[in-house]
Design a protein around this nucleic acid. Structure first.
Length: 667
DNA sequence: CGCCAATTATTTTTT
DNA sequence: ATAATTGGCG
């Protein structure tokens, strides 16, 4: 294979050619990090490294997909068996391959944050001292922090006695519940594999042999557990290449430790260090603004990003009257810009600090019939009807999952309330079986009314039937059938008078089942468990093709690693970025500044920063101020478009709108 | 046990 | 503003 590293600059080339031994690539935003990594992989393979010996780890599925696609594009089939995965899917894989060692049964369920919260809430309720005083989400957050890195007794040395006692009590209950339910949470997906690797040297050795070459992307975002996993895996051959940028560390709230990247050369002796500082992405002005803001952070590796590109346009700065005006401005700008420059809609991105900000933009984009995608936000799977039905599927897959069982046993209403559940649970304890099995053994001798007993039995048969059908029918078919059988629609009709709302929810379920179908069609060996796993890790294909030609709406966190010609950075207000909540922590301000930095450096050519002077929050109109970070940008880089924006109603736009209308009817 | 009205929290970011 | 949760009553 002929390889053309000549396209790389000297530093990039140097990095690409270091195949053996530890290597740290410090790469600033837009310095061709992925290009370098992809070329490096190609080079490795050309030098005889087998693709199946390469493991590349990223943080998001998006990044994983991008990397494997670019490698495929460059060297085609010879990269086929390269392993590109996120930390969590890597952890899941190790855990699945060795689940028995830690006492998990096959088909364990992955609990998401909502499931975790529900377990914490129940645990809190059993502690009288904790009643009302502790918020479940705060306790969960504390637990996740205190349980790391080893998942054993909590590290309470910095907590006061009272909190500590509550935390550890909740923690014990939490752990017991997950164990009992044959469930793991996201943290387990990292911690449990680590335990396996530590405890079983022969297993560790087999992974070390399997993955002789390791690449870690966004290394600045690794936490203590991820660091230990990587260190163990790389310990034998020491062919470890990490890539990252301390200025883009934005996961401190998830336990990421910037010191992992800052101390890399201490952890891995004789590491080569290469800096990539030439930026190929953004114009001079965008870079200057980004540099000015990030300079406000202390304790960072000095970096001087530079570009050969010219200054470019100034940053458009727009102060909107309120959030609706802001959205109108942005969408109108996109429309006019698109018409004037005939650019694909795919070159526009609307970036924001939080998912909830997406709403107005989404509405307006839809109203103007502009193709768009909203990335992430999980909203779909958070909808009640979706969660309900997913719980049915989870029970189908793992009947020990009592969290899901309890959620659905009376949804739709079957007349099974707290008292019945209490009897059931006593019965289950007596028989030393799970709640689900107790359904099969309950009989008239208990104090349950015949009517209720009948319903319980009906429910049991319903699930068992579906489970049997799963062996011969397609998952989508079983799901569709199950959905019809539970008559959820009746429940909806009882709760909502508005037929639109009912139709909407039914449509959501249709979409879910279509999603199952889609999964089944494209997976080589589809299983219900596989589907649930994919959803839990958010591994669905919102791939390149799907996003092509569409305006992308997303959070800064999901935008990391991506670039767009035109970026609209919206809602840039004090309280949103930096977010009020984040300022409560010691690292908060610095991390918010890095977030701002990440947002700005996504833009290649044109950047608009906007905010709203008024915003509705919890039904209240509130005055807002621009983000403090805007003051850190030198004035001469900004082009203010203050006040009321001009109505852009020139002929072209009208014409365009008319043609859209035409398209609407011809559909 | 189910229904309704009153009360309360919701908005940080992802796997 | 809205959705979810809680408490009291039939």
């Amino acid at each position: 294979m002929k390889l053309s590293l000549y396209k790389l600059n000297p530093q990039q080339r140097k990095a690409a050619k270091i195949v053996d031994g530890p290597l740290l690539v410090l790469s600033g935003a837009g310095t061709g990090k992925t290009t370098t990594v992809v070329n490096r992989i190609a080079y490795m393979i050309s030098r005889g490294v087998k693709s199946e010996e390469i493991l590349a780890v990223t943080f998001t599925n998006k990044a994983a997909r991008e990397m494997s696609e670019r490698v495929k594009k460059m060297i085609g089939r010879s990269a086929k068996s390269m392993q590109v995965s996120t930390f969590h899917s890597l952890g899941l894989r190790i855990l699945r391959e060795n689940h028995k060692l830690l006492g998990y049964r096959r088909n364990f369920t992955i609990y998401d944050t909502a499931d975790q919260l529900s377990v914490v809430r129940k645990a809190l309720r059993t502690i009288s001292a904790a009643w009302k005083k502790y918020k479940p989400d705060e306790v969960l957050y504390a637990l996740n922090r205190l349980r790391m890195p080893h998942n054993e007794a909590l590290d309470l040395k910095y907590e006061n006695e009272f909190d500590g006692a509550v935390y550890s009590s909740v923690w014990e209950k939490y752990r017991a519940t997950l164990r009992n339910n044959n469930a793991v949470d996201y943290e387990d997906l990292l911690v449990q594999p680590l335990r396996i690797l530590k405890k079983y040297p022969e297993i560790l050795n087999s992974y070390q042999e399997k993955f002789k070459y390791i690449i870690v992307d966004e290394y600045q975002d690794t936490n203590a557990v991820q660091f230990e996993i990587i260190k163990l895996l790389a310990n034998k051959y020491k062919n470890i290449c990490v890539v990252g940028d301390d200025d883009q560390s934005i996961y401190g709230w998830r336990g990421a430790e910037v010191k992992n990247i800052l101390d890399f050369d201490k952890h891995f002796k004789k590491a080569s260090v290469i800096r990539l500082e030439e930026n190929y992405r953004s114009t001079g002005i965008i870079l200057k603004a980004a540099n000015a803001v990030i300079a406000g952070n202390k304790d960072r590796k000095a970096k001087k990003l530079w570009t050969r590109m010219g200054d470019g346009n100034r940053i458009n700065f727009f102060a909107a009257a309120d959030e609706m005006t802001e959205a109108e401005y942005v969408v109108t700008q996109i429309i006019t810009h698109q018409i004037e420059n005939k650019m694909s809609y795919g070159s526009y991105a609307i970036l924001m600090r939080m998912n909830t900000q997406a709403r107005q933009f989404e509405e307006l984009l839809r109203a103007h019939r502009i193709p768009y995608v909203v990335v992430g936000g999980m909203q779909f799977y958070d909808r009640k009807e979706i969660r309900d039905f997913m719980s049915y599927l989870k029970v189908l897959s793992n009947h020990e999952d009592e969290e899901s069982l309890l959620r659905i046993i009376n949804v739709p209403r079957r007349g099974i309330g707290d008292s019945t559940l209490k009897i059931m649970s006593e019965h289950a304890n007596l028989k030393k079986c799970g709640l689900y099995e107790s359904l099969a053994t309950l009989n008239e001798s208990s104090d349950i009314k015949p009517k209720t007993l009948f319903e319980l039995n009906k429910f049991y048969v319903l699930i068992e039937d579906a489970r049997k059908r799963l062996k011969r029918e397609s998952i989508a078919m079983v799901a569709r059938n199950l959905w019809a059988e539970i008559e959820y629609q009746r429940e909806l009709e009882a709760t909502f008078s508005d037929p639109k709302k009912i139709a909407e929810r039914m449509a959501n379920i249709d979409a879910l089942i279509d999603g199952i179908q889609y999964y089944e069609n494209r997976d080589r060996k589809p299983t219900l468990e596989g589907y649930l796993r994919q959803v839990s890790l958010m591994e669905e294909d919102d791939d390149e093709e799907f996003q092509k030609g569409k305006v992308v709406v997303m959070t800064i966190h999901s935008a990391k690693g991506l670039e767009f010609r035109n970026v609209f950075f919206v809602g840039v207000e004090q309280g949103i970025i930096p977010h009020t909540k984040s300022l409560e922590t010691s690292y908060g301000e610095a991390e918010e500044r890095r977030l701002f930095y990440v947002a700005v450096t996504r833009a290649k050519q044109e950047l608009t920063i906007s905010y709203s002077k008024m915003r509705t929050k919890f039904g209240q109109r509130i005055e807002r101020l621009p983000s403090m970070f805007i003051n850190e940008i030198p004035d001469n880089l900004l082009e203010p478009t203050d006040g009321i924006y001009q109505e852009v109603a020139d002929d072209e736009v009208t014409e365009d709108l008319l043609s859209r209308f035409g398209a609407m009817f011809s559909e």
